[in-house]
Design a protein around this nucleic acid. Structure first.
Length: 154
DNA sequence: GCCAACGTTGGC
DNA sequence: GCCAACGTTGGC
């Protein structure tokens, strides 16, 4: 079982939105970055644990915990000309983009802000892409040690 | 709203 | 294959 961090903009789809879905589960479509795609497609498996991160908002940070609720499968929005994330170059015979389903588990008792996490950038969270300058990965791996450390901050 | 950092595209 | 131009991300 692996650990991940996944970003979402609360104005678009925040953790409260996830918690209010049927079965508290949502297909994580729209990933259009190859690095994120590769991790999602090749390494994510049902049962993996996820830090749910709010980006592009007043207090960016980790706000909750979710889990991967399906195996990876082709992202159908890439084939839909009406969809925001339509990609004419994604061929259904050889899909370019994938998704997994994500299920809400719980909110953290408090938001663990990016600022707080960055305070450990040279310590326990050294090497974590999130705390590195200019990071834009929307999906990133979290080591078991980092996972435990961050949960201890809660 | 600004802008640094980064990924992608396309001309050559 | 290089790299300038462009678009996007996302913190501040």
């Amino acid at each position: 079982m692996r650990y991940w961090l996944m970003k979402s903009e609360p104005d678009t789809f925040g953790i409260d939105d996830l918690a209010s879905q049927p079965d508290r589960t949502e297909p994580w479509d729209g990933v259009r970055n190859y690095q994120a795609r590769n991790m999602l497609r090749d390494e994510m498996r049902a049962g993996d644990q996820v830090f749910f991160y709010h980006s592009n908002c007043k207090v960016p940070g980790i706000v909750g915990i979710a889990e991967i609720a399906s195996e990876p499968r082709p992202d159908p929005t890439a084939f839909d000309p009406q969809a925001t994330y339509f990609d004419p170059k994604s061929d259904p015979q050889s899909p370019r983009w994938y998704l997994v389903e994500v299920r809400y588990i719980r909110h953290l008792k408090r938001t663990i802000s990016l600022a707080e996490l960055k305070a450990h950038a040279d310590g326990a969270l050294q090497g974590m892409p999130l705390v590195r300058k200019g990071n834009r990965l929307s999906i990133m791996p979290v080591t078991p040690e980092q996972w435990a450390f961050i949960l201890d901050l809660e």
